[in-house]
Design a protein around this nucleic acid. Structure first.
Lengths: 135, 135
DNA sequence: ATAAACCCTATTGTTTTAGTAGATTTATAA
DNA sequence: TTATAAATCTACTAAAACAATAGGGTTTAT
């Protein structure tokens, strides 16, 4: 299951991407438009900013805004920041690889074999979609 | 992330599928061979039996065994029983569809648009793999 | 009598999804 | 210059759900 964090993050990015200009948009406005708990959204936007997707301005007239062209924001990086690894098991993860404690031989593991294919197919989807593509 | 339940379930099914015959195999043997908590495995095998994948025999010489040919067990049904919906959001699920409370229009939702593709690509993998294929 | 699956319940730990309270920064008006 | 309001930022807490077992007794086949 997709976490609400990721869902809300994607919706917020989409909302910002569909703005006519790149003027700051307030958290409250996004929260209201997308039916998201404002405080929860606040922390999500913060991590999106810290990971280079958004810029922010404090004080009156402040808010969040995209700092890149939506076409230059691949879903791979968005998903990895919000949801974590794209792979369903660490032993097939490209960016978060970890050996299974219980599995003696990955090459003969049926779970590994299946999940490798699932990862590749998901990866292809995320690579073929930028933020601009899902608007 | 794949739950351990699913991971263990897949491993147990693979273990049973790679037996030379269809004689009952005890829980303890599977648990030991695959490094799985025996009590946890017990409940997993039970749900696999109740969902028509396994048969069981009580008493001495008892255990679990496959009741179908591994080639006739598609990963779609295994995953749905162990892990639940294949879709990452209910609004794109074939077997567990549910409307999002917050989303007024699915056809214009970016999350829906992306996750529909992810579901389809995962589904293709699961449909193309039977238990026999991942041994 | 024994060995196995079966069934029920409780517990522990982690993650998710927030809510609360306040601090800090900035723009604007007095 | 000062006050005020509008925002983000930070830290702490907490409730709820979920994951992953552990324990102990029951039933059934040999």
């Amino acid at each position: 299951m997709l976490s609400k964090k990721t869902k809300y993050g994607l919706k917020a990015l989409s909302y910002l991407a569909s703005q006519p200009d790149r003027q700051p948009v307030q958290i409250a406005e996004i929260a209201k438009a997308e039916n998201i708990s404002q405080k929860f959204l606040e922390s999500i936007l913060l991590t999106l900013r810290k990971n280079g997707f958004l810029g922010s301005r404090k004080g009156k007239g402040g808010g969040y805004y995209l700092i890149k062209d939506p076409a230059d924001i691949p879903m791979t990086s968005v998903m990895r920041v919000l949801e974590g690894p794209i792979a369903m098991v660490p032993c097939v993860s490209l960016n978060f690889y970890e050996k299974c404690a219980d599995c003696p031989d990955e090459s003969r593991c049926s779970v590994n074999k299946l999940m490798l294919q699932v990862r590749d197919s998901a990866l292809e989807v995320y690579r073929n979609n930028s933020l601009a593509d899902i608007l």
